Amino acid sequence: MNVFEEIQHRLSSKTRIRSLFKDVHAEDLERIISRMNDVLAEKLEARDKEEEKRQAKIESIEAIKQIMSDRGVSLDDLGALEIEAPKKRRNIQKYTFEYQTEAGDTVQWEGATTGRLPRDFQAYLDRTGKKRLDCVAE
């Protein structure tokens, strides 16, 4: 049981409240009640503000609905007008790379400067210590 549930359980019955405050002076009890009333007033004020915000939204929605009906527009019409944004394409520049296999054959490979490489090309780069861009065929 968490603290809030425990407090709620203790304060939910007059008998439990009496036993809880049996050794408390009347002045202390009045101070506690006054503070609780202050907290209650704050909670009620916050609830009223939220209700006002909700009511303002409802009024705005009703006004928008009225404008739409005056102009003959429905929610379906709004959905039909949505234009899909074109998909962004990755702009990856492709190169033709030229390298030699261990057998001495010259091979050309088309690809980018990032990503995985053919095994032979990777072995060539490791063997020679070159970078990919050093192998671009012109």
Rank of each mutant, 00 (worst) to 15 (best):
E102P: 14
A63Y: 04
E98V: 13
S19V: 02
G104P: 10
G79A: 14
L11H: 09
D76N: 03
A41C: 04
E42A: 13
K94V: 07
S74C: 12
K22L: 09
S19A: 03
A63C: 06
D120M: 05
C135V: 05
N2Q: 00
T106C: 00
D105A: 03
M36G: 08
I83G: 11
I7T: 14
F4D: 05
I67L: 06
P86H: 04
D105G: 09
Y124H: 03
D134G: 04
C135L: 03
S13F: 14
E50L: 15
S34A: 15
E50K: 14
P118A: 00
E102W: 11
K65D: 12
R132C: 06
I32M: 07
E82D: 06
K87N: 02
L133W: 09
K130D: 01
Y124K: 09
V107N: 13
F21P: 12
S12E: 15
T101K: 03
A26R: 07
Q66T: 03
D126L: 11
F97P: 00
Y95I: 00
S13K: 11
T114S: 11
T128F: 00
E51T: 14
D70E: 10
K88A: 05
S34K: 11
E110D: 14
Q66K: 04
E102Q: 15
P118H: 02
R127M: 09
Q108E: 00
D48T: 12
L133F: 07
R89P: 10
A80D: 05
I33E: 13
R35Y: 09
R116Y: 14
R127W: 06
M36K: 07
I61T: 15
Q8W: 10
I67T: 03
G115P: 00
H9S: 06
F4H: 06
T15Y: 07
Q93V: 12
E98S: 15
D28L: 05
L11I: 12
E51V: 10
M1A: 06
L133D: 12
I17E: 12
R132W: 04
I92Q: 02
V39G: 05
A26F: 05
Q8D: 05
E30F: 11
R132G: 00
D28N: 03
K43G: 13
D23P: 08
E82K: 02
I7Y: 08
I92R: 06
L78V: 03
R116N: 09
A41P: 02
M1T: 08
Q122P: 02
K130P: 02
I61L: 08
A103C: 07
R116H: 14
D134N: 07
D28H: 09
D38F: 11
K130Y: 04
S19L: 05
